[in-house]
Amino acid sequence: MADSFELAFDRRQWSAAALTMPVLVIRSGRDFWSRPEDAKAIVDEAPKAERLNILDATHFVHLDRDATGRGVFLDAVKRFLDRPEE
């Protein structure tokens, strides 16, 4: 809750620049909770970040129907986790 409060006033608690491992940032187009600028900040700062936007998905994309993004989400996570270590 404290992170959410601080974020609402544009005060982040951490920097994504410290994330040196591969990072997959997934943002759903119909997400009521996370903001597009937050996902962009992580991708811009983390050296090994990649971004996936799922336009019709909600905040609960893992529970959505395949037609709105669940399959895309699961495929992306599986591909990301199956990649060889760097």
Results as ranks from 00 to 15, higher is better:
residue 10 D to V: 03
residue 71 G to N: 10
residue 81 L to G: 11
residue 24 L to W: 01
residue 37 E to V: 09
residue 58 T to W: 01
residue 16 A to K: 03
residue 29 G to Y: 02
residue 24 L to I: 02
residue 85 E to S: 13
residue 79 R to P: 02
residue 61 V to D: 01
residue 2 A to S: 07
residue 35 R to V: 11
residue 64 D to E: 05
residue 14 W to S: 12
residue 4 S to G: 15
residue 21 M to V: 10
residue 11 R to Y: 02
residue 67 A to K: 01
residue 12 R to F: 10
residue 13 Q to P: 10
residue 52 L to E: 06
residue 55 L to Y: 07
residue 53 N to S: 15
residue 77 V to M: 12
residue 13 Q to R: 15
residue 42 I to Y: 03
residue 83 R to A: 12
residue 34 S to T: 12
residue 44 D to L: 12
residue 51 R to G: 09
residue 40 K to Y: 00
residue 9 F to M: 08
residue 51 R to C: 04
residue 68 T to W: 03
residue 17 A to V: 00
residue 84 P to N: 10
residue 9 F to A: 11
residue 63 L to A: 13
residue 31 D to W: 01
residue 50 E to H: 06
residue 20 T to V: 12
residue 80 F to R: 01
residue 47 P to R: 07
residue 44 D to R: 14
residue 63 L to E: 13
residue 55 L to E: 15
residue 52 L to G: 05
residue 68 T to R: 06
residue 37 E to Y: 08
residue 35 R to N: 11
residue 4 S to C: 13
residue 6 E to C: 11
residue 55 L to C: 06
residue 67 A to C: 00
residue 69 G to R: 02
residue 65 R to S: 11
residue 45 E to I: 03
residue 83 R to P: 05
residue 76 A to I: 05
residue 34 S to D: 05
residue 24 L to E: 02
residue 78 K to E: 15
residue 53 N to M: 15
residue 23 V to N: 00
residue 47 P to K: 08
residue 10 D to C: 03
residue 13 Q to Y: 12
residue 50 E to W: 02
residue 7 L to A: 13
residue 72 V to P: 04
residue 26 I to F: 01
residue 25 V to K: 01
residue 62 H to Y: 11
residue 44 D to F: 08
residue 72 V to A: 14
residue 23 V to K: 00
residue 11 R to D: 06
residue 54 I to C: 04
residue 76 A to S: 13
residue 47 P to C: 03
residue 67 A to E: 05
residue 47 P to H: 01
residue 62 H to I: 08
residue 73 F to H: 11
residue 66 D to P: 14
residue 50 E to M: 08
residue 77 V to H: 07
residue 37 E to P: 03
residue 4 S to T: 13
residue 60 F to D: 15
residue 27 R to D: 10
residue 11 R to G: 02
residue 5 F to Y: 15
residue 1 M to A: 13
residue 22 P to F: 00
residue 79 R to C: 02
residue 73 F to E: 03
residue 63 L to C: 08
residue 6 E to L: 14
residue 31 D to V: 00
residue 21 M to A: 09
residue 73 F to Q: 05
residue 14 W to N: 09
residue 31 D to E: 00
residue 23 V to Y: 00
residue 33 W to Y: 10
residue 53 N to R: 14
residue 20 T to A: 15
residue 47 P to W: 01
residue 37 E to N: 11
residue 63 L to I: 05
residue 26 I to N: 02
residue 4 S to H: 14
residue 19 L to E: 04
residue 40 K to L: 07
residue 51 R to S: 12
residue 15 S to P: 01
residue 20 T to W: 06
residue 77 V to T: 06
residue 53 N to T: 15
residue 86 E to T: 14
residue 31 D to P: 01
residue 53 N to G: 14
residue 68 T to I: 10
residue 73 F to W: 08
residue 7 L to E: 12
residue 51 R to W: 11
residue 42 I to T: 07
residue 58 T to Q: 02
residue 37 E to T: 10
residue 15 S to A: 06
residue 67 A to V: 00
residue 56 D to R: 13
residue 28 S to G: 14
residue 51 R to K: 09
residue 76 A to D: 07
residue 10 D to L: 05
residue 83 R to L: 06
residue 38 D to V: 03
residue 37 E to L: 09
residue 48 K to A: 11
residue 5 F to I: 15
residue 15 S to T: 09
residue 22 P to S: 00
residue 46 A to S: 07
residue 39 A to W: 04
residue 47 P to D: 05
residue 8 A to D: 13
residue 55 L to V: 12
residue 63 L to K: 08
residue 64 D to W: 03
residue 10 D to M: 05
residue 29 G to D: 06
residue 70 R to H: 05
residue 82 D to W: 08
